[in-house]
Design a protein around this nucleic acid. Structure first.
Lengths: 323, 323
DNA sequence: GTGAAAGCGCTAACAA
DNA sequence: TTGTTAGCGCTTTCAC
């Protein structure tokens, strides 16, 4: 490893001067040039660990998302990354995989690595972020709210679910059921609440994980126990499982059953029939979260802020009753 | 921040003893317990930067992938993560987004952060990994080969493309065209070569980026200039664009046109018609790459190793001619 | 087995 | 402006 001392020796200046030259502080142009040339010649890369240790801060943000396979989160990641990149931060992407243990482990890693800030989509509202806060690391929550006073960038899931359900009812599907997701996810509960507001009662629902298997299981559960004529599904992953289960039962979407799902996955337009979705502005959510976070990193004080984005109902064939 | 010195003071022992106790070195059980209790009481988290600086190594691997939105790469990521996790390493996931600049930037970050090792799916065969190698950081390439002597975990794209094309021909599609991907990606060239071997000539092809837009553009190009009756598509993202373009032209897959694509995306079974795919063992690729890398991290010497996985043709409706 | 002390590579305070 | 020096928090000799 070539250190700043090697460079200093090579350039015939002091390590401090090399450091200043490479970090854009005021240095005699001639010496700066010598330092730069020497660094180049030796292929010098500043050791980030040493620098960070000394500076007591990093230029790395951690983004802990609940599922990389979910297109919503990859879009959020893009938003976070673009904003962070532009501000000179790199983003450490961590995939918690809807697993609270993994999530906790990544939080610990983020703290140990002393990241400048954390964006997290917590698996459950009870996720413990105390240690991060205690360590003085700014933290912004996305997608799912948290039982803690932190900055949040959320989506009005409830009104989205309500609008979607009303749309189903208006299309003549009179017995919609709701597959909101896992019972410990706040967004799932919000969706269920919106659904219930629209049906004007308890309705029918089945909790299940945000996964292909979860979707299949939940669909099977409501189809076995009740006789729904439409489904409101919590996310795109689940929808794949739902489609699988429906195919198994020879049920045709748009004829036997109406379908609306959360998340406008890129493939939603191409399945048969095309799927009506409740779209979320995922990229913007990520970007806004990163902006909020960078503000805190820069020292912005004040109460935790909550930003809420609306959803957009994109009507396609799956929710329109075939005549 | 609570440091090891605070803990030492609290426990009435020396910092060295605390360090030893917390890292499982030989310490008197009684003192060890006191140290552990004090650490717990104070909520002590070892500062990873300081530790790494001192130890001159990290327990973080970097995984630089070309596109998080591509299900193949998220599956690879899972494989890498599972193996790394089990060995006590965390994985820093970097999304190069098929952008050589971003890719280079992440490589620099990985070097600066002194990661223990790097798994990378390089955008192009010319990607420069010299600095990483010069810095002594072990590196394993996945999915796409590199013009450098490094460990690689690859897929036999050529034979996969060949088998897929032969399948199309056998199904009676006599004029298949190939949309292999971008001209600077080695896998794209391999796929083209396999296709050409099967058609026994140059055939028809159009290069385009591995993206939805790329797929649409490439499909438009071959449809405008030639009259193919089948398409072999380079990846799942592109296929979404191809489907879009075909819909725009009112061409029906399975009737007007046969279709086979690389990558068994989770949605491939559900689009209309279900898509015949050349599946890759993505998870295993990631897992194998991580194993190889950890071997090198642990000091395994020897020539660069190349592991090749086969592909699997999964025949669905899109390539079967409707009667 | 334990503690004192050195030092990883860097930057910031201080002197010159 | 530049160089010298101290020290970020940790682990690891080296004495004891």
């Amino acid at each position: 490893m070539v250190t700043i001392i090697d460079v200093a020796r090579e350039a015939g200046v002091s390590p401090a001067t090399v450091s200043r030259a490479l970090n854009g502080a005021k240095v005699d142009p001639e010496l700066a040039e010598r330092a730069r040339a020497a660094a180049e010649r030796l292929g010098y890369r500043a050791n980030a660990m040493a620098r960070n240790l000394r500076r007591q801060k990093t230029d790395v943000l951690a983004l802990i998302i609940s599922d990389v396979a979910n297109p919503v989160f990859t879009a959020i990641a893009r938003g976070v990354e673009d904003v962070a990149q532009r501000a000179g931060y790199s983003v450490l992407l961590c995939n918690a995989d809807e697993d609270p243990d993994k999530e906790a482990r990544y939080l610990e890693v983020a703290i140990a690595e002393q990241v400048a800030g954390i964006v997290i989509s917590p698996h459950a509202a009870a996720t413990d972020v105390e240690r991060a806060i205690a360590a003085g690391i700014p933290l912004v929550v996305v997608d799912r709210p948290l039982d803690a006073p932190v900055d949040s960038v959320l989506v009005r899931s409830e009104s989205g679910a309500r609008a979607a359900t009303e749309h189903l009812l208006a299309e003549g599907w009179n017995r919609p059921a709701c597959l909101p997701g896992p019972a410990d996810a706040a967004t799932a509960l919000d969706r269920l609440a919106g659904y219930r507001a629209a049906v004007g009662g308890d309705g029918v629902h089945a909790f299940a994980p945000f996964s292909i298997e979860g979707g299949a299981a939940a669909a099977a559960a409501v189809l076995d126990s009740h006789d729904p004529d439409a489904l409101l599904v919590g996310n795109a992953q689940m929808t794949l499982g739902v489609l699988e289960e429906l195919a198994r039962r020879h049920l045709v979407v748009g004829r036997d059953l109406g379908l609306v799902t959360f998340d406008d996955a890129p493939w939603a337009r191409f399945v048969d029939p095309a799927i009506t979705v409740v779209g979320q502005p995922a990229y913007e959510i990520g970007a806004r979260a990163a902006e909020l976070l960078l503000g805190r990193v820069a020292g912005a004080a004040g109460k935790p802020e909550t930003v809420e984005f609306g959803t957009e109902l994109v009507v396609r064939a799956s929710s329109v009753r075939r005549r």
